[in-house]
Amino acid sequence: MEQQYYITSFCSIKNNKISKNGELLYSDDNSDSIKDFAKGIYKFLELKYPKFHKMDELCKLSFLASEVLLSDQLEVSEDTALVLANRASSLDTDRKHQDTIKDRENYFPSPAVFVYTLPNIMMGEISIRHQLKSENAFFVKKAFDAKFLTTYSRVLLDTNKASNVICGWVDLDNDKYDVFLAFISRNGEKLLSKEQLNNFYKS
C-alpha cells in the first residue's frame, strides 16, 4: 500500500504579500523594489541575521519564506530535505554577473555576486540558518509542477533519505516573483497529494 504523508504547513510570497497556511501575515504595496519588499518582511519578522543582507534577492525570498514556514517549530530536524524548483534558475543574478564582464575596460566580476549564480545556493542559506544537514535538490521546470514535487518528496521519504521535506517553488525573473514552500512530514492532518499541494499553491 502507498505510504501516506502530510502537508503540515505552507507559506506563500506573491503579489506583495506573505502568508502562512493561507492567512495573510504582511503586505506592502509601496515598495519600489523586491529588495525593499524583502527588507520590509525581514523587519516585520524582527529577524537579526546579518547574512540576510548579503544574499541575492532570490535567496532573500526563499529565506524569508522558510523563516515563516518554520516559525512555529521549536526545533527543525537536521534530517529535513529541501526540494526546490523554479523557471528562471538564478538568471536574475546571472544577468548581474554578466554585466560585470561585458566591458573589457571595466572588467570587475564580483565574487559576492558570482557565488549566487547557482540556484541551489538558496538551499545552502536555509540549511545554514536551520542547521539542516540533509538532502538538497534544485530542479528547473516551466511552471509550478505539483505532480513532480509530490512525486520526488514521496521518493525521498519512501527511500528513507530524509524524515521531512520542505518542497516548493521559488522563482524570480525581471522583477516578477512567485514563492511557495510546503512542509511535508510523516504525521499530520492534510494528506499529501498533488491536488492538495496545487490547491495550497493557488490559495
Binding site: V115, G124, Q131, K133, S134, E135
Partner: peptide, 11 residues
C-alpha cells in the same frame, strides 16, 4: 547513495 548539506558556508 546519499547527499547532505554542510550547513556551514555557501562557498
Amino acid at each position: 547513495d546519499a547527499s547532505a548539506n554542510d550547513a556551514n558556508h555557501i562557498s
